[in-house]
Amino acid sequence: MTDVKMSRRSVLIGGAVSAASVAATRAIGAHAAEAVTPSPAEAPAISTVRFDVNGRAVTLTLDNRTTLLDALREHLHLTGTKKGCDHGQCGACTVIADGRRINSCLSLAVMNEGAKITTIEGLGTPENLHPMQAAFVRHDGYQCGYCTSGQICSAVGMLAELRAGMPSHVSASLTDTPKLDAGELRERMSGNLCRCGAYSNIADAITDVAGSRA
């Protein structure tokens, strides 16, 4: 019986696809964001958004309330990005949007029209890891792993900010080129919490990558 082979994940994905097709049916006639007129009684209000995820162009017609995080996880099934607090406090949902790390839980999907989104799945693959992914494995930069994809996306974004010369709260000078030391690393990564407390190995992994690029 084929059902026996069905994993929990494939059941979840099947359910999500059904939900997406219901949303798509409702979207008929609602061509673009401006096609929906303000009418609180008529729920749910939906819009269409187009963006690029990990190099793939996607068009989604979504309930306006859908966050970028939920669009990635529930509609595109990119479950590598995690939902921690859902309020911008933990950083587990960090993705890279147009080259910048952001909290995907505090952005509506429809606000990302035309954006280029990179998630943990777009950084590397199991066969061809991104250097930051490889460094987290090498340094054991996790325990439970739930914050890890956010930590890795955040670290990649952080090193790009550093290369762009962006100062931080602990930079002694606002005008000198900042250098990554332990204090800078802690300050720049303070938007990512790890409740297992794997911070020392996370810091080692990031320092390793930063050093190899310097």
Partner: peptide
Amino acid sequence: SRALLAGASAQLRNR
């Protein structure tokens, strides 16, 4: 600059 850098996290400041 200093006041801005003292606020929030890098992810939040990016948006």
